[in-house]
């Protein structure tokens, strides 16, 4: 069922990690004041080491302020790390997206939490989805139009949506447009930063269901960031728990839920379980 262009782990018996983070740290508040005095700074990430294998979904779980979005932005090349190394397919990944090759930028795609902010309100949806096609594949306007329609179908949206503006469609549909834009680049690694937490529950489910289907059909690797352990359990092969910038625990899903080792993981799990009556 897998489309031909997606063969990220063909013929690799023991696949090497697709993405490796070695001791990645990040600080906030490195901005200079007017007179060059350093602003207040705080550690956002401390010595985070992780690996993600081809075709794998790794969920990054933590409360707000735990540094999980920062991690996604560092991998996407949108924010510099203050220390550590990131390797992608065996090579070191340049920190700044502009210093990466076009192929690297194409293969690593990021989807943001809030589609209201991640889609340009002044661009029609077709233009938004078509831009990566133009940039990475140099498609002509006619080829783009055809591909945009395919992509809209892929995210279960009617093709006339290409002519609409983001504010003319619902929130869940907007997030699916953002997904279509990411898929347009034919990525290998998709960074999903809380992509359903701004959506209503049933809309959330429809977006997750769609992403699950796409993942199953394409073998995409996912770094799936969420604060909801249940969503992480639905989606992930492994779960990494982040607490105040430090990685507490990384474990396969069933292991983590059966025997959480870190006290914070245990507390998080307890907060997700119903207290008074079984669900």
């Amino acid at each position: 069922m897998r489309p031909a262009f997606y063969s990220p782990n063909a013929g690799a018996p023991a696949p090497l990690p697709l993405l490796t983070l070695e001791g990645v740290s990040a600080r906030y508040g490195q901005t200079r004041g007017l007179l060059g005095r350093p602003g207040a700074s705080a550690d956002v990430l401390r010595q985070v080491s992780l690996s993600l294998h081809p075709g794998e979904t790794l969920a990054l779980v933590g409360e707000s302020g735990s540094g999980k979005s920062t991690l996604a932005r560092i991998v996407a090349g949108l924010q510099p790390a203050s220390g550590g190394r990131i390797c992608y397919r065996g090579g070191e990944l340049p920190a700044d997206a502009h210093k990466r090759s076009a192929d690297l930028r194409r293969e690593i795609q990021i989807i943001f939490q809030n589609p209201d902010s991640s889609l340009n309100r002044r661009h029609r949806i077709g233009r938004t989805i078509g831009r990566p096609l133009e940039l990475f594949f140099g498609l002509s306007a006619r080829e783009r139009e055809k591909r945009v329609i395919d992509l809209l179908h892929a995210v279960r949206l009617p093709e006339d949506y290409a002519w609409r503006y983001p504010e003319e469609v619902s929130g869940g549909e907007r997030q699916r447009v953002a997904l279509a834009r990411a898929l347009a680049a034919q990525p290998r690694l998709l960074l999903c930063d809380e992509i359903v937490s701004a959506l209503d529950v049933s809309v959330q489910a429809s977006v997750l269901a769609l992403l699950g289907t796409i993942k199953a059909q394409t073998g995409l690797s996912l770094l799936f960031i969420t604060h909801d352990l249940a969503v992480a359990r639905w989606f992930a092969d492994r779960i990494a728990v982040l607490y105040r910038g430090e990685l507490c625990e990384v474990a396969p899903v069933e292991e983590l839920f059966a025997a959480p080792r870190h006290p914070y993981t245990q507390a998080l799990l307890a907060a997700h379980r119903p207290s008074t009556r079984p669900f």
């Binding site: 932005r73 996407a76 090349g77 949108l78 997206a97 502009h98 990466r100 076009a102 930028r105 690593i108 795609q109 990021i110 943001f112 939490q113 809030n114 902010s117 991640s118 889609l119 340009n120 831009r131 990566p132 940039l135 990475f136 834009r181 680049a185």
Partner: peptide, 13 residues
């Protein structure tokens, strides 16, 4: 500061 600008930067615009 909006995410669509971040998305454009990530694309390498």
């Amino acid at each position: 500061a909006e995410d669509f600008v971040l998305a454009a930067r990530a694309r390498g615009e």
